[in-house]
C-alpha cells in the first residue's frame, strides 16, 4: 500500500499539469472542455479509505481551481464525484468482488466494466461542474448539451490514456 503513494503523487502532479497546461486550452466549438484530471480519482486503489477519497478529491479540485482562478468550482465537483465513487463501485462490482492488489483499470477488469464505471463518474462530475459554472437553470438544455459533449470527449481521452498506462506498465 505504501509503495503506491509516490506513484499517485506523480499521477496527481502530471494530471494537474496536463489539464492546466494543455487541456484547458482546448475548446472545441465553444462547447467542449475536456476534464481528464479526474482520472486520478478514478484509478485510486479500491482499499483507499473513504475519508481519504474526499480529501484527495478536494485537494485535486483545489489544485485545478487555483490554476484556473475558479476557487471552489472544481473542488465541489471533485468532492461530489469522490463521494459517489464507493457507491458506484459497489453497484457495478463483479460477482466475486474486487480482488486485492488490483486497481480499477481496464487492464484488470476489462473495457466493459471500466466503461460503465467511468461513464457514470465522469458524467456526474461534468454535470456538477458545468452547472456550478453556469449557476442557474435557465439555458438548462444548452448546459446539458455541453455536459454530454464534454463528457464524451473526456472519456475518449481517459480511455486512450488507459492503453498508454497498460503498455507502460507491461514494459516494467
Amino acid at each position: 500500500m505504501i509503495k503506491v503513494i509516490p506513484r499517485y503523487i506523480i499521477n496527481f502532479v502530471v494530471l494537474v499539469l496536463v489539464q492546466v497546461l494543455i487541456l484547458n486550452n482546448i475548446q472545441l466549438g465553444g462547447f467542449i472542455n475536456p476534464y481528464v484530471y479526474i482520472l486520478f480519482i478514478l484509478i485510486l486503489p479500491f482499499e483507499t479509505p473513504k475519508w481519504l477519497l474526499l480529501v484527495l478529491g478536494f485537494l485535486l479540485g483545489f489544485a485545478i481551481d487555483s490554476f484556473t482562478n475558479t476557487l471552489g468550482m472544481h473542488s465541489s465537483a471533485c468532492v461530489f464525484m469522490a463521494f459517489l465513487r464507493p457507491f458506484v463501485l459497489k453497484m457495478i462490482s463483479p460477482r466475486d468482488g474486487y480482488e486485492s492488489e488490483t486497481l480499477p483499470m481496464v487492464k484488470f477488469y476489462g473495457l466493459g466494466w471500466f466503461l460503465r464505471y467511468a461513464v457514470i463518474l465522469v458524467f456526474t462530475h461534468h454535470l456538477f461542474l458545468f452547472y456550478a459554472e453556469v449557476f442557474r437553470f435557465s439555458d438548462f438544455f444548452l448546459t446539458f448539451f455541453r455536459v454530454i459533449l464534454s463528457s464524451i470527449f473526456s472519456l475518449l481521452i481517459i480511455f486512450i490514456s488507459q492503453y498508454f498506462y497498460r503498455s507502460s506498465t507491461r514494459r516494467k
Binding site: 473513504k50 478529491g57 476557487l71 471552489g72 468550482m73 473542488s75 465541489s76 468532492v79 449557476f135
Partner: peptide, 28 residues
C-alpha cells in the same frame, strides 16, 4: 462520518465558490 465529511467538504467548496467567483456570488 463519510456522509458528514462529504457534506462538510461540499459546503466548504461551495463557500469557496461563492466567495471567490464574482458571477456565482452575484447570482446567489
Amino acid at each position: 462520518h463519510f456522509l458528514v465529511l462529504f457534506i462538510l467538504m461540499e459546503v466548504l467548496s461551495i463557500i469557496l465558490l461563492v466567495n471567490n467567483n464574482n458571477f456565482q456570488q452575484a447570482a446567489l
